[in-house]
Design a protein around this nucleic acid. Structure first.
Length: 110
DNA sequence: TACAAGCAATAGT
DNA sequence: ACTATTGCTTGTA
């Protein structure tokens, strides 16, 4: 199978690459950055993630500071690994929730 | 080409 | 807590 990267995925990866290390971004913000109102589409694109680890999908979290899912698992070890990765980058989580909301990155359009 | 099903969510009730 | 909505991808006919 050939990895078919669509324009939408390109946008998602491009926006995600803009996120600096130690920061996280929510599906809503990311979707807003690429002009998409459906975070599920983003999850679909991140699930394939042909640009790993260049595209840090583990930096994408759900709204409200929740963790969300990872690698196709909305709950499980994969999510625990995601928390561990983020914790290693300086983002602290507690009870599957973001501790420092300031770690949330916002896409500023200008 | 057309239709149907699925996905790491969010918002509203 | 549950249901409805939403945008995109993939597979089958």
């Amino acid at each position: 199978m050939k990895s078919t990267v669509t324009a939408f995925q390109q946008r998602v990866y491009d926006a995600l690459r803009r996120v600096p290390k130690g920061f996280v971004v929510t599906y809503a913000e990311l979707g807003r950055a690429i002009g998409c109102g459906s975070p599920r589409a983003i999850g679909q694109a991140l699930k394939v993630n042909p640009f790993w680890p260049e595209v840090p999908c583990h930096r994408v979290i759900a709204a409200g500071g929740r963790v969300g899912g990872f690698q196709g698992q909305a709950r499980g070890k994969a999510v625990a690994r995601k928390l561990r990765l983020l914790n290693s980058e300086g983002v602290q989580f507690e009870c599957d929730q973001l501790v420092d909301v300031k770690r949330l990155y916002s896409f500023k359009r200008r």
